[in-house]
Amino acid sequence: MTKGVTFDPMYGMPVMHPEHDLPKGVISFSEAMSGKQLDHDNYVGFYENDDQIERFWNHPWSYLPRLSKFAGFIATDYSTGTGIPDPVRRYNVYRNQLTGAWLQSLGFHVLCNVRCPAADYDYFLAGVPHNSLIAIGEIGCVKNPQDRNRFTGGVMRAVDELEPTGLVVVGEDSYGVFDYARSHGVPVHFHSGATERFREGDADV
């Protein structure tokens, strides 16, 4: 996957390029691989439990014949929550960035999937494009007030540091967590129901 990918010089994270095409819709990786009749104008997202998407990481080329029929992708969403040891979080950020950068290197439209703490852990945003559409997964991240506060802080940091041209949110408009983005003139586009297998408890953006 590293062939054709550039890397951030400070943290070694794969670099993704800006994207500006809005997806018509978002479906899950599992749904895309199900064999159902699907609208290929959709983007494929990976907001599922880690074990559901590990097969793509292990054998990415074998899934391209089917996945390449779709209009684009959102980069993978391996777990990066606060309950995970930092070396594992760092590795999962690397994997999320690499899948996106690799697919971009092949010529696909790919939105960067952004999750970041409200402060510190700068490697979360290394290689993430500025002045671009970015994707955020919301489902299961804001029900608990403490998780909601962390999630909202991550949204604020992403808006301030990345200056995105828009947010593509897979989830709902809940508890005002995206009000800060709107107040800064960032359009927020929602796609719900992309999968029934969303992971809960990964509250960092």
Rank of each mutant, 00 (worst) to 15 (best):
D51L: 11
D51W: 15
V128M: 05
V114A: 02
V110T: 14
N149G: 09
E54K: 14
C141V: 11
V110Y: 00
A126M: 06
T152Y: 05
Q146N: 12
Y94W: 15
N92R: 06
D120W: 02
I134L: 04
D39E: 09
G127S: 11
R148G: 01
S68G: 05
N49V: 12
V88S: 12
L111A: 10
A71F: 03
S79N: 14
V110D: 03
T76S: 13
F151I: 05
V88E: 11
Q146M: 06
A118N: 14
L103Q: 01
H130A: 13
V128R: 01
L67S: 00
P129Y: 04
L111R: 02
P117S: 10
Y78M: 12
D122N: 11
F56C: 03
T152M: 13
D41I: 04
G45H: 03
Y121P: 00
C141H: 10
H59W: 10
P129H: 01
V44R: 00
H59F: 12
Y91P: 01
N49G: 13
R89W: 08
R150F: 08
G107I: 13
A126C: 12
P60D: 03
H130D: 13
N49R: 12
D77S: 14
S68L: 00
P87D: 08
H109A: 10
T82A: 13
I134R: 01
T99Q: 09
C112Y: 03
G83V: 06
N92I: 08
S132P: 10
Y63F: 15
G83H: 12
G100V: 05
N58A: 13
Q104S: 08
L111Q: 07
F108I: 07
P117K: 05
S132Y: 05
R115F: 01
D122G: 05
I136K: 05
C141K: 12
I84T: 13
P65W: 02
G137E: 00
Y94K: 04
T152I: 11
V128S: 03
F70W: 07
N42F: 00
L67N: 01
D41N: 15
D41C: 03
Y78K: 09
R66I: 02
T82W: 07
P87F: 10
L98R: 04
T80H: 06
V110E: 05
S132D: 09
C141E: 03
D51A: 11
Y94E: 08
G81D: 15
S68K: 04
N92Q: 09
L98A: 05
E54R: 14
G83S: 12
D147V: 02
A71V: 02
D77I: 08
G81E: 07
V110M: 12
L67I: 00
L111F: 07
N49D: 11
G100S: 10
K69R: 14
Q97G: 13
F124R: 00
N149H: 15
G140S: 10
H40R: 10
N113D: 14
P129V: 04
Y121V: 03
A118G: 12
N131A: 12
R148F: 05
G153K: 03
N58Y: 04
S62R: 06
D39S: 06
V88P: 02
A119I: 04
L103P: 07
Y47V: 07
